[in-house]
Design a protein around this nucleic acid. Structure first.
Lengths: 333, 333
DNA sequence: CGAGGTGGCTGAAACGATTCACGCCCCGAG
DNA sequence: CTCGGGGCGTGAATCGTTTCAGCCACCTCG
């Protein structure tokens, strides 16, 4: 089949040990031999079998990443940051998409553990997964991404959603709004709830009563269409929200569509603020103001923490890192 | 370190062969032994080392996929289709993102070959890559995705872009437009060129002169912002395109923004037709008509072809499959 | 009672790369 | 001339799993 190091050795008239040395510590081999071996490698089209190498070495040079949804620009950018750092530091990244299904997550966890990844980055479908815990106990360094789990002791990188909500609230208050509609996905999601908490806190800090200022419209999914329909319904009911803060940009896009399709002007009739600052936000019919999360940075940091733990397991100390989001003002507010 | 099959065997008081049998052909082992072994496996937290298994087996159960840009919904959906089929058929998928950089593609090709993937799915940065060719010659089954290369003999799955352009042209002609602006990325890209070819053909088929009907606006990148600026410029120059066909939805989103921000009505003042039917198309301020490519189906088919070749290399015959796109009419035309 | 079968299990070989203790050769110093 | 040492190479052991020839005990049937 594919030529092995042994075939190369035979053809070049040297021992397998020497071929291995050419590959891994060329300075230990005389120039003449090295060149002869390299010539044979090229001639035979030899490609190292990394499974065998890693089996012998006892540890691979790859990291596993399991995200909830690669189609989501938020996770996509995080993955990108992780990949960049992993590559820089000489690790390969195996990218997996759990699609928010525990069964898929479970399958990937097993797969990655069987492949003996050196470390794992994961946004778990639900915190406290048994399999994940087992993986950690068996000694695979693990970093939680966009999640914290106070019960388990490991590194994590997340974003302060309460602070994001505060940023939003402060911005809308500063623009003079005294009635703010919060369009959100299920409040059972921590992110959605935290952003509301922040929003109310900012309103209170502005000297107003959150209960009077903030109206909540909870929709069952973080999708543009759903928000569009919910807001159309609002309009039909005669409600005219002067300022809308959305739990993510997709919802905001839906609200924008509802406004534009009914002849309302943004930001004149309705101020609109999103969350996440996805790529489409800037290119929407009215460029959206949004709360930006430092996605690339999150990814980079997570990868750095993980590699640090992989490379220096003894001296490593777990860290829980919390990033602060940032307000991006465009034309919708 | 991690317990091996040998540790399990010792603890259970059986031979390693028996443990392996419990894992791989449980019917060959008596109930009592099987249960005893499984109990020890659970107790020790044994996880099979698939590197060793695959080394011994001489072939892995994983496929490699290298796409140009995972952030692009088109590729994302294709990847999804591939992943689904791979999983169904018992293969794992290793997902890589070349980001349209030849160097990254090259690196991933090497990585995947070293990992001995069983087969490869790829949208090459440029057709005729040396390394890819070498990989094929060395015997790794390969399927081209969204590309054809007449010079090399392998399976491929693509979409007929000329047909897509025709669909667009016919639709706009049928709506009574006798002046069509084609907003496109670099015509050096085959897709952009083919879609134009199709558009002109449809115009000719409709009994009109393509040179009179079709205006081309070529912009340097397939990005919303660029299209927005180009169309604003058009407006400033006093040009009023009655119908715009865009080489992809991102461009169309940019055109839509230009129209809305200048008070023009879609579709009344400008009919607008996109390409790809990305998720955002349906939720744009004015839901976009678009040409849909059967992305999931492309992915599924590509994976099926590849697995077929992997599983039956002797009887396999290469196929070049071409899908036809489909017109989706919404509110923008 | 013996031959033949069969179910259940054993143990060693093999996969391909890495590593390391050890040999060989040659040169220079004493 | 001898001894020591450095530079190059060698080849066997090793990683964890799978596979397969073969062994044992027991059963069945003539």
């Amino acid at each position: 089949m594919a030529p092995s190091i042994k075939d190369v050795a035979e053809r070049a008239g040297v021992s397998v040990g020497t071929v291995s040395n050419v590959l891994n510590r060329p300075d230990k081999v005389s120039l003449a031999t090295r060149e002869a071996v390299l010539a044979v490698i090229a001639e035979l089209g030899f490609v190292r079998n990394s499974q065998a190498a890693q089996l012998r070495a006892g540890a691979s040079r790859s990291l596993g990443l399991i995200v909830l949804d690669l189609a989501n620009p938020f996770f996509h950018d995080i993955a990108r940051g992780i990949e960049d750092v992993a590559t820089e530091l000489g690790y390969a990244l195996v990218l997996c998409n759990s699609d928010e299904q525990a069964a898929r997550e479970e399958r990937y966890l097993r797969l990655l553990e069987e492949q003996r990844v050196r470390g794992m980055l994961i946004t778990p479908v639900e915190v406290g997964s048994e399999r994940l815990d087992a993986l950690r106990r068996r000694g695979t360094p693990t970093v939680l991404v966009d999640r914290h789990d106070p019960r388990i002791d490991c590194c994590s990188v997340a974003v302060d959603d309460v602070a994001g909500g505060e940023l939003a609230g402060a911005h809308l208050m500063a623009s003079g709004h005294r009635r703010i509609t919060y369009v959100t996905g299920p409040l059972a999601l921590r992110q959605c709830k935290d952003r509301l908490t922040g929003l109310r806190r900012a309103v209170a800090d502005g000297g107003a009563d959150p209960d009077e200022v903030v109206d909540v419209v909870e929709v069952p999914a973080l999708k543009a269409r759903i928000a569009y329909e919910a807001v159309r319904q609002l309009f039909d009911d005669g409600v005219e929200p002067g300022a809308v803060f959305c739990a993510n940009d997709l919802l905001a896009l839906g609200v924008l569509r509802a406004a534009i399709s009914t002849g309302r002007r943004v930001p004149d009739d309705i101020a609109l603020l999103g969350y996440d600052d996805i790529e489409f936000a800037a290119d929407a019919a009215v460029p959206l103001s949004s709360i930006r999360q430092p996605t690339l940075h999150i990814g980079r940091t997570a990868a750095q923490l993980l590699v640090e733990e992989c490379d220096h397991p003894r001296s490593h100390a777990h860290q829980q890192i919390m990033f602060r989001p940032e307000l991006v003002v465009r034309e919708s507010t």
